[in-house]
Amino acid sequence: MNPENEEIFIGISVSFILASIISLIPVWQLIIIPGVVAGALCKNLKRASLTSGIGTFIAWNLYMISGLALKNIYLIFDQFGALIFGFGYGWLFVLIILLMGLVLGFIGGALGYYIKSVYNDYNHRKNNTNLK
């Protein structure tokens, strides 16, 4: 596997595994973390964002499939949708959730990438200063 593909594979795997674990914790804001971690492992912004977004998206997809199959969650979305728009909008929430998984993973990846970059810049400057 070439290094680029390897990075993509690792990024997706890390964000997928972390997203799957974090989705068990009842604080939804934490879902940014898998992207941050996976993004920090990538060497360019595009790969960082994409791998993180895809990893989180896959994790939430699996969560969604299990929820739809085992917990009749679609009906809850439908009922919730009825409070806002009227009946029959459960699909909209399924779409929103999956898209938000993608978007939050994407943002997390970018965040991780830039945190790593700023950290590297800082280390680089510190090392240069010490050498002088």
């Binding site: 939804w28 934490l30 879902i31 009749n72 979305f77 959730i97």
Partner: peptide, 21 residues
């Protein structure tokens, strides 16, 4: 009067924790 979408919709919280059968 509807709670935040993040709290009720996103996996790990809210509606996903509603007891089913």
């Amino acid at each position: 009067s509807i709670p935040s979408l993040g709290k009720v919709l996103f996996p790990g919280d809210g509606f996903w924790n509603i007891p089913s059968e």
